[in-house]
């Protein structure tokens, strides 16, 4: 239905420090396409992507919803440069979403996060180069667990949060953590690719 953005420029040497779109990115794109009707009803005004990497996800979202304000963040500044080129424009380099959190509190209609979910030794977590794109520490959850408590504060009442995970991240535990914030979880799509069993999770406030 929607064309996948062109990211051939990432092969340039300048972007060797940028995470190239891979199976997880494409699963994320397909999931957002699945969710198009749902999202079209919300009509997202403010979209925030945490850790945008090349910017492929935000570029795609901007195509789905041309009249939304898409803010992207990344800890790796060369990733940000790639994302500018791919037209996802409103970029901020930062450690987490924190310098945006006060002002965006309760305003984000669509929050997107393809986190560093790979299980690694904890020492590998939190660099500012390409390893920051995947190194997730114990259970692959070190960064995920830092972001999750901020999600309910950032979202607007009808807002929705999508996140990519692998089985090792322990989906049941994540669901449990978010239930404390009155958020319910569903799984939009899953796929097996090599050793990874990937899923895209969706969280909304439980209005029942």
């Amino acid at each position: 239905m929607f064309e996948t953005p062109d990211f051939s420029h990432l092969r340039d040497k300048e972007f060797s420090e940028v995470y190239e779109p891979a199976e997880d990115s494409f699963l994320f794109l397909n999931s957002l396409e699945d969710e198009f009707d749902y999202l079209a009803k919300i009509k997202p005004t403010i979209v925030l992507e945490i850790g945008c990497g090349s910017g492929i996800i935000s570029t795609f979202v901007k195509r789905l919803f041309p009249f939304s304000f898409c803010i992207c963040t990344d800890i790796n500044s060369s990733a940000s440069k790639a994302a500018v080129i791919s037209a996802a424009r409103n970029l901020v380099d930062l450690n987490a979403a924190s310098p945006l959190e006060d002002r965006l509190s309760g305003k984000v209609d669509l929050l997107l996060f393809n986190p560093p979910y790979v299980v690694t030794p904890d020492e590998e977590v939190g660099g500012r180069n390409i390893s920051a794109a995947w190194a997730g520490g114990e259970k692959g959850r070190r960064i995920i667990d830092k972001v999750l408590p901020h999600v309910p504060n950032m979202l607007s009442p009808l807002g929705v949060f999508y996140m990519v995970v692998i089985k090792e991240n322990n989906i049941d535990e994540i669901e449990e953590k978010m239930r404390i914030f009155n958020m319910k979880m569903t799984c939009v799509r899953s796929t097996r690719t090599g050793p990874e069993f990937l899923s895209v999770l969706k969280f909304t406030f439980d209005r029942s």
Partner: peptide, 13 residues
Amino acid sequence: NGIPNMLLNEEEV
């Protein structure tokens, strides 16, 4: 290049 860099050093946080 149009991108604000809000990254802090560890000692500033």
